[in-house]
Amino acid sequence: MFRFIQAALVDFTDLLFPTLCLGCRCSLTANEKILCADCRIRLPETGQHREPYDQNLLNKFAGKVPIQFVASYLFFSRHNLVQKLIHQIKYKGQKEAAKEIARWYGHQLKTESQLANQIDVLIGVPLHKSRFQQRGYNQADSIAEGLSEALNVPMATDILARTRFRDSQTRKNRLDRWENVKTAFAVLRPEAVEGKNVMIVDDVLTTGATLEACSIELLRAGCKSVSVITLAATHR
């Protein structure tokens, strides 16, 4: 009887306050999460994890820092569905969406590639404590958490820190982005990454400046290799 009443209450709540697709804002069915089936099918997947040494993404770091491999789930462009999702994740408190979408990608990585076997620890790009207090969460950590669950690879939030507050990277070019972040990170526990294969996790790979700055500090701390994984990446 209790289960029947509980199920009825859930159905009634869903009727009054339906969960909406983050893409088209239609009501989700009981079997859908975050996106409706139509929007999920329309996600512009890169398929790039099957070719993690693809130069299109590695070239963002060429001649700057040695990156083992790069993998991104989706193509990001202005006004597309992915931009809408990233905006919701980054600025609208949708950290559960970040975890769920990361799980989708993690399952692909586990079944369609060998990348998980080359990772010892996942580290999300950290926020400065002021930015963290403003948002209440770090979207990169949420993404790393979803990947960690799907890949069965540990994540850490106490190794890399953002030590300097910098303004937004959104409207900056590559050089300005680098100047903005080149001294913004520090490794708090070098012993935790010494000799390890580290995967840095972020929401979007654009110029790569932030990820480059993180990678340099991790390599200086003695990690064996650094790789990059993001939910999305720009074409350029």
Rank of each mutant, 00 (worst) to 15 (best):
M1C: 10
F4D: 11
Q6C: 11
L9C: 14
V10H: 14
D11R: 15
F12T: 13
D14R: 13
L16M: 06
P18D: 06
T19D: 10
C26Q: 13
T29V: 03
T29A: 09
C36F: 00
D38E: 15
E51P: 04
P52N: 04
Y53V: 11
L57A: 06
N59D: 13
F75N: 13
F76H: 14
R78I: 08
K84R: 14
Q88K: 05
I89R: 03
I101Q: 06
Y105S: 07
Q108R: 14
Q108E: 13
L115G: 08
N117M: 11
N117W: 10
I123T: 01
K129Q: 14
Q133R: 15
Q134T: 14
R135H: 02
N138M: 01
Q139S: 04
Q139V: 01
D141W: 07
A144Q: 05
E145L: 15
G146I: 08
G146H: 03
E149A: 10
A150F: 04
M155A: 10
M155I: 07
T157G: 07
D158Q: 12
I159P: 07
L160C: 08
R174N: 06
R174F: 03
V181G: 02
K182Q: 09
T183N: 15
A186V: 12
A192M: 13
E194I: 11
G208W: 00
T210A: 03
L211M: 13
E212L: 05
A213G: 07
I216P: 01
L219A: 01
S225F: 05
S227F: 01
A232K: 02
A233C: 11
